[in-house]
Design a protein around this nucleic acid. Structure first.
Lengths: 338, 338
DNA sequence: AACAACATTTCAAACGTTTGAAATAATTGC
DNA sequence: GCAATTATTTCAAACGTTTGAAATGTTGTT
């Protein structure tokens, strides 16, 4: 209803005092008289004064905004990670702008430019599958805006801050768990080869085998690009040799594991019920499955997000020098079901 | 690396012209000489000039930001709805700030105040379960900032813009579908009674029964507050009377339906396999279930989000008067599985 | 009564942009 | 060659806030 916006100037006129007194009164300056403060604050409340962020941002040369670029909000890993970010950001007076790249480099570049224009105070980014050139993200550091890479490893970009899940350890632990349960033929179903995590996890797998004197067989390793057809042909390969049948499976991701399980069941694989499955993810739906996996690798995305925002805020506050590149690793936890 | 920020002033000094020429050149004013424009734009590119949004926002009295308040990013309904919002917002030059209320009124109020300070140009909100007082949201309209309520019906707030799923129609259609498949004893498992949708869906259910001459029995209706224990006791009630056994079930939400199914299976209910289930949601996970529901009610959250942002932008542009309250209803679609 | 000491308020510039009005420069017609 | 046009550039104020310096007001001391 009000047509004149309630600004400091407006309050000052009403109260017959100067704009600076009003400003200082609202910001609780010690040089302002107590009674004056009271009068100002009361008037501000009554007139629903809301400070204009754009003006403050301009003056302070801060936007109090943190940008997040991530592939996708349909993936629970990312939405869970945001939970950690948002909470800590809000506590520290920051707003969060989330932008989805949909794993498309063009959209990622667009998002980056848009956030740059918004003069975010810092950026948290999970790069798209196709990001190999980082110039759109390097712009930020060139302007002194800190960037924390998280969730996905930007292995092509050597000098940067990273917060990553300890995917090696997660896969090692899962494999070890299956070995301890007596398995000797443990298959590994990996993700797309272009994702670094695929190799890190494979290394966890193979190190666990080696450390526990379980022989490695290349027949027990296959990769999928997440496409269902592709997953099924991978699983066919894993179960191709009757002499070398897996009794357990470690999968890159629970959804592809479910596809694998569904396929094995659909062909009435004789050992379907005896095979033990472990995958990355810890989906809440697991409890509704008739033959649930024996365990899940919980990646603690909230913690990854929380560590990313904590590091970013330290960088913004210059508690850590922007060129003193940090790497934070968040361990996985094996969740045994049942 | 640059310590002096690249501003219009900086460019102007480099080019030995006035700030306004630079500004107008970059904004492609017709009064500016072509050659000048070229020189300015080139210099801007070379020096990586990025206009300062805070300054523009202050001048234009617009933030180019749209706020979204929603309960939760872990619920696929909401993340899917954001997909629709983000895309259209970006196309129209708006950024989106998402804030989660976690279904907590206090957090919702906090979020609202934060977005008000940020001077969002418009607000899209899915209210928390406990929102009955709307003063924190009414502030926006009082300042001339349009608000669109979506996804959750703010029935206590009569004069407002709404975009809602046609939950009545969805439930009617599901019930009708089951009737057409020959069911006479169709149970309805509702959500928390404080949510309006619970009643709308119930009305859809009962209207479908009436319109098709299927007798209604109150024994076949129960409610749950989403808590697992609570769901199980509801389902026990539904299946309590051996004289009046349901042969089909319409559920408020797929997750509670899964809980119900799991329970029935766990007690080895004799008719478990014969019962036909339909719930709201269309979870992708369904395909991994051994006994999947016969159909799902797809609520088209992307479309709900898209309609909300479209309406909001029309309101922002004053193509629709802010007090000419609109109601948009998005139909559900029954997805038959298998 | 004069002045130091302190309390309180106001001034004025700055942040980076936009934009109508005014000023200046270039071109045309005669 | 000079006024009249037209093209182009610059001026100056504004958006709403913050903040150090300057100005003003109030006490207390002698």
């Amino acid at each position: 209803m009000n047509n004149t916006p309630v600004t400091l100037k407006f309050l000052a006129e009403k109260l017959k005092m100067s704009v600076s007194t009003v400003s200082k009164a609202l910001n609780n300056y010690p040089t302002i008289n107590e009674y004056t403060k009271q009068r100002v604050q009361e008037m501000a409340r009554d007139l629903h004064f809301t400070p204009n962020k754009s003006a403050i941002n301009l003056k302070e040369k801060k936007s109090h905004i943190i940008g997040i670029i991530l592939p996708n909000l349909l993936d629970h890993y990312f939405t869970r990670s945001i939970y950690g970010v948002e909470q800590f950001a809000t506590q520290n007076g920051y707003n969060v702008i989330i932008s989805q790249s949909h794993d498309d480099l063009k959209k990622e570049i667009q998002s980056a430019n848009m956030l740059l224009r918004s003069r975010v105070d810092g950026l948290i980014v999970a790069i798209s599958k196709h990001t190999q050139d980082f110039s759109h993200l390097d712009q930020f550091e060139n302007m002194g805006i800190p960037v924390v890479y998280y969730a996905r490893n930007p292995s092509f970009n050597l000098s940067c801050h990273k917060v990553l899940g300890n995917t090696f350890q997660g896969c090692y632990q899962a494999t070890k768990f299956l070995i301890d349960r007596g398995h000797k033929k443990i298959a590994y179903l990996g993700g797309p080869k272009m994702i670094n995590f695929t190799h890190d996890r494979f290394n966890g797998y193979i190190n666990a085998l080696n450390d526990n004197q379980v022989p490695f067989s290349s027949e027990l390793v296959a990769y999928t690009d997440f496409d269902k057809e592709n997953t099924i042909s991978a699983i066919k390969n894993l179960f191709a040799n009757p002499e070398n049948m897996p009794t357990a499976l470690v999968a890159f991701k629970e959804p592809i594991m479910f596809d694998a399980m569904k396929y094995l069941k659909s062909i009435n694989h004789p050992d379907f019920d005896k095979i033990e499955y472990v995958g990355f993810g810890n989906t809440s739906f697991i409890s509704y499955l008739d033959s649930p996996p024996i365990a899940s690798i919980e990646e603690n995305p909230e913690s990854v997000g929380e560590n990313a925002i904590k590091l970013l805020i330290q960088l913004i506050n210059k508690e850590i020098d922007i060129h003193n590149y940090q790497k934070v690793v968040v361990d996985c936890k094996l969740i045994v079901h049942g």
